[in-house]
Simulated scan of single mutants.
Amino acid sequence: MTSMSEHHHHHHAHTGPGRASWRMAASATLHCLTGCAIGEVLGLVIATALGWHTVPSIALAVVLAFFFGYLLTLIPLRRAGVAWKDAIKLALAADTVSIIVMEIVDNGVMVAIPGAMDAGLASGLFWGALAVALLVAFLVTTPINKWIIGRGKGHAVVHAYHH
């Protein structure tokens, strides 16, 4: 098991600042989007089933998006033998900015599309708006992740553990 500092040094030797590819950024963003989408959908399904209004629905969806976003990073880190404390630190470092940006964008798009938040789960408007919101979030977050990874931050801190 490598320590965080050994991994950090090794990773910089491998990728170095400024060397993030668009493919790596898109992969990191897709990874984040997957966790966010699971949390968003689950949160909105639960909130709709409970008859909640927009603000508490979004709050639950955001909390679950962070939970699943981090979880999808924690699982491979733990499988790679990283201790819980280090895995949590790595997940927080890898995903926090990406999830924040993604959540602001996708929830902003959902709220901006008239009727989307009130459409209900059986509505094509709801699912179409959610698909558009997640696509826009992906397109906005990918260049941000490319810049962050290029600086040796964000998803770059866990890249060596993803095999």
Rank of each mutant, 00 (worst) to 15 (best):
L72E: 06
A80M: 05
F66A: 05
L30F: 12
I58L: 05
V101G: 04
I100K: 02
I99P: 00
P76K: 00
G43K: 05
D106Y: 15
G108P: 12
G39C: 04
T96F: 12
A61C: 09
G81E: 00
G115Y: 08
D106N: 14
D95I: 11
A87F: 04
A65E: 03
V62Q: 01
V45T: 11
V55M: 13
T96L: 14
L74P: 04
I38P: 04
V105H: 10
A94R: 05
S57N: 07
T48W: 12
V109W: 13
P114K: 05
A59D: 03
A87W: 09
W84L: 13
G115P: 07
L64D: 05
M110G: 13
L60F: 09
E40H: 14
L30W: 11
V82D: 01
E40T: 15
E40G: 14
V62P: 00
C36K: 10
L44S: 03
V97Q: 09
L92Y: 10
I113H: 03
A49S: 09
L72D: 01
K89R: 14
A65S: 15
A80T: 01
C32Y: 11
S98K: 00
P114C: 05
A47Q: 06
N107V: 10
I58W: 03
F67K: 00
E103W: 09
G43M: 12
D95M: 12
T96M: 12
L30H: 04
I99Y: 05
R79F: 11
G43E: 06
I38G: 02
M102P: 06
A83M: 04
T96Q: 08
L33I: 14
P56G: 06
L92F: 15
W52S: 11
V82E: 00
A47E: 02
A47W: 07
I104R: 03
D86R: 07
T73M: 06
I58G: 02
P114Y: 08
V111W: 08
T73N: 10
V63L: 13
G39F: 06
A83K: 12
V111F: 07
D86Y: 08
G43D: 05
G81K: 02
I88E: 04
F66T: 04
I58D: 00
P76A: 01
Y70H: 11
